[in-house]
């Protein structure tokens, strides 16, 4: 006699493990996307705050007449001014040739287009945002070469921050919604099961069963449902990971699989712990529901 209560035969609870599993899966995905978003937005935030790009346009009245030597001299002058500016930590010159190399993977074999692209010379400056005043630097550089464009990425920061923050709040809300829905589903199944089996509970109680024994039966059923749900979630997560890996492997330009590898601990944490954690909360919530409902039924 595995169980004295036929609670697994509750038709209302038949699909609960799969529903709960789907919720756990979606919650894990939302949590994963939250972590990915947090990582990317964190990285963008850092880049936007700590980078200034100087652009020497290819086609301007001044640069179109410059020889390569003149351009090199100009770059040296600019570098000299930049290096002497307080708050600058690193300078990288990206020549049009280097720019072409960076764009090559995106354009594939279209070398003719690439060669004819009017790529500017770029000077990437890493800065300490608290020390460097970009407007002062810009004024100094304009004196040397008026067509020079100073692109301060910090100006985009507020827009990116709002977008990132909104997305993260949305993902957290989504994750919480899935979590709460899974809890409510299991709680609903447990409560209906208790009500459906009220007659049996009454008989067991009249035969001397304590609330603890009756609750144990239902808790064990809730635990089984949570474990089955977690199992379903794990299978779905594994399939998604395999599908993601397969899809991204076909596009060498994407580094998404490396994100998985670089953040293996996070991926494992979310993949393994979120369903487990949800399962634990569900069992605990079922226990509370059972306790409350048995007191309400009060077959004493």
């Amino acid at each position: 006699m595995a169980s004295d209560l036929p609670i697994t035969k509750n038709p209302a609870a038949r699909y609960v493990p799969w529903t709960v599993g789907l919720m756990m899966y979606l919650a894990s995905l939302a949590a994963f996307l939250f972590i990915v978003g947090f990582h990317f937005f964190g990285s963008w935030r850092h880049d936007l705050l700590t980078h200034v790009t100087l652009e020497i346009p290819k086609h301007s009245l001044l640069t179109s007449t410059l020889s390569q030597n003149d351009l090199d001299t100009l770059i040296l002058k600019i570098k000299d001014v930049v290096q002497k500016t307080p708050g600058v930590t690193h300078i990288t010159v990206i020549s049009p040739q280097m720019g072409q190399k960076l764009l090559a993977p995106l354009l594939g074999d279209q070398q003719i287009i690439l060669k004819n692209l009017p790529l500017p010379t770029l000077i990437e400056i890493e800065k300490n945002p608290e020390i460097l005043d970009v407007s002062i630097l810009e004024a100094s550089l304009k004196k040397i070469f008026p067509p020079l464009r100073v692109i301060n990425h910090q100006t985009h920061f507020s827009k990116i921050f709002i977008l990132g923050f909104s997305l993260e709040v949305f993902l957290l809300t989504l994750m919480s919604a899935f979590f709460v829905t899974a809890l409510l589903t299991l709680s609903f199944a447990t409560r209906t099961s208790l009500l459906i089996h009220k007659n049996i509970i009454d008989i067991l109680s009249l035969l001397g069963a304590s609330d603890a024994i009756i609750a144990k039966e239902f808790q064990s059923n809730a635990r089984t449902m949570a474990i089955r749900g977690a199992g379903t979630a794990y299978i779905l997560l594994l399939l998604t990971a395999l599908l993601g890996f397969f899809l991204f492997q076909r596009h060498e330009t994407f580094s998404f699989p490396f994100f998985f590898l670089n953040h293996l601990s996070w991926t494992l944490f979310l993949g393994l712990l979120v369903p487990l954690l949800m399962g634990f909360f569900m069992i605990f919530s079922a226990r509370l529901s059972i306790g409350r409902l048995l007191k309400k039924l009060d077959h004493a």
């Binding site: 006699m1 004295d4 036929p6 049996i200 008989i203 009249l206 035969l207 001397g208 024994i213």
Partner: peptide, 20 residues
Amino acid sequence: FRLLDHLTALENVVLPLRLQ
């Protein structure tokens, strides 16, 4: 009677002891 219909006669009889 208050027997549990899904249990056999034997299972019904042992129930009070099983609950203990």
